[in-house]
Design a protein around this nucleic acid. Sequence first.
DNA 1: ATCGCCTCCTGCGCGC
DNA 2: TGCGCGCAGGAGGCGA
Length: 271
Amino acid sequence: MPELPEVETSRRGIEPYLLQQEITAVLIRNPQLRWPIPRTLNNKLEGKTIQAINRRGKYILIKIEKGSLILHLGMSGSLRISDPATAFRKHDHFILTFNNNKQLRLHDPRRFGAVLWQTGNPLKHPLLAKLGPEPLSDKFNTDYLYKTCRNRKASIKQHIMNSHIVVGVGNIYASEALFLAGIHPKRAAGRISKHRIEKLVAANKQILNAAIKQGGTTLRDFVREDGQPGYFKQWLNVYGKTDDPCPECGNLIKQITLGQRSTFYCPKCQH
DNA sequence: ATCGCCTCCTGCGCGC
DNA sequence: TGCGCGCAGGAGGCGA
């Protein structure tokens, strides 16, 4: 999916179309996402005005009176702003119509995404309450990450992809950040020096910021609110580059499986 | 508490 | 051209 840069790109893209708009209609074309879309949403949303669009990890939070609509794009989800006259596409599952005559459409072929509701503070939702810090915030720093790594035998890649440790880092950016930091993805989290953890924290922030600037990475599914892809793909160093030369040393990039996920690294630069 | 594996689902690219 | 196979950006939940 959409990792943090893609979700942030979507959030920024839809924000100007949604802010201060009234929701005039709610359409659930297919409620069968990761969890069923609650049928009661219509009553909660219709006639309400959108007050803010925020993001927490990979969740988009749409604040209205009394609560928030919470969206997750799963692995293949995307959000688009459409004209109501435009025909629905297959896999347009959830649609909001606004009084500016625009629609927000959630498109998600694999249906791993989610549409949730939380009354009051959305961060109290059970799925959000235990999330780790935002990677671009000051709370995600060397001391914090180093502390979470103590006595951990899991690989560092799985560690930084664990949303209870830090949110928003998915399969692409985990490989990329570890490359920048020179750390082997399989290395046990507990066996990395504080100095190298410091490099990893910096690498994480660097890669996520750069990807947001480019509107995210489009491999196959991800598109921005206007249907355009993200352009970070051309800046990737190792992800999907099996047997290509490492941009640093020329050694061939290796692909392994770690925790059921494809993982890419340079065997010479990363230890 | 932590870890590794399984699962949900559709679509696409590849090799035969 | 068609078919079967493997793989895909997430992450909760389970059993060990």
